[in-house]
């Protein structure tokens, strides 16, 4: 019988937070967040399949301030997970494991994902303005 009282990994709370560990857990957190985004995408597509009324209800929900807040969070989660995912693919090819590169690529990931998030929303609002 397995002893469930023994310590099990990962011990997030016993280590001093560092840029490497914070970005690492953020990758997981954004990944789980994106799973929720996938459910919302399914609801959105299904509402369009149901017809104009259902789609209209979904659009009202998504266009509310709360809906926009959630979508903004999903946008950042996607760009962060994507950028840090590219960083992961670099590690998979044994590139970028040394501390200086870990720090610089980490900083690039944070700046790029924030920029792409803001840029996307500016473009979206710009597009609405044109309508």
């Amino acid at each position: 019988m397995r002893d469930n009282t023994r310590p099990l990994s990962p011990h997030l709370q016993v280590y001093r937070p560092q840029i490497t560990s914070i970005l690492s857990i953020l990758h997981r957190m954004t990944g789980v967040t994106l799973a929720l985004a996938a459910l919302l995408l399914t609801y959105w597509l299904a509402s369009a399949a149901y017809g104009p009324e259902a789609f209209g209800r979904a659009q009202v929900l998504l266009e509310s301030w709360f809906g926009r807040l959630v979508l903004f969070g999903f946008t950042f989660s996607l760009f962060y997970h994507m950028c840090n995912g590219i960083r992961h693919l670099g590690w998979d090819m044994l590139w970028g494991f040394d501390m200086p590169r870990l720090r610089i690529t980490g900083a690039i990931v944070v700046i790029t994902s924030l920029s792409l998030t803001v840029l996307s929303w500016l473009m979206a609002y710009g597009h609405v303005g044109k309508l």
């Binding site: 369009a48 017809g51 104009p52 789609f55 209209g56 996307s120 979206a124 609002y125 309508l131």
Partner: peptide
């Protein structure tokens, strides 16, 4: 993401 940007504010018919 690019598609969503261009679809922002569309009605049922456009989507």
């Amino acid at each position: 993401v690019y598609s969503l940007i261009t679809l922002t504010g569309s009605d049922y018919g456009t989507f």
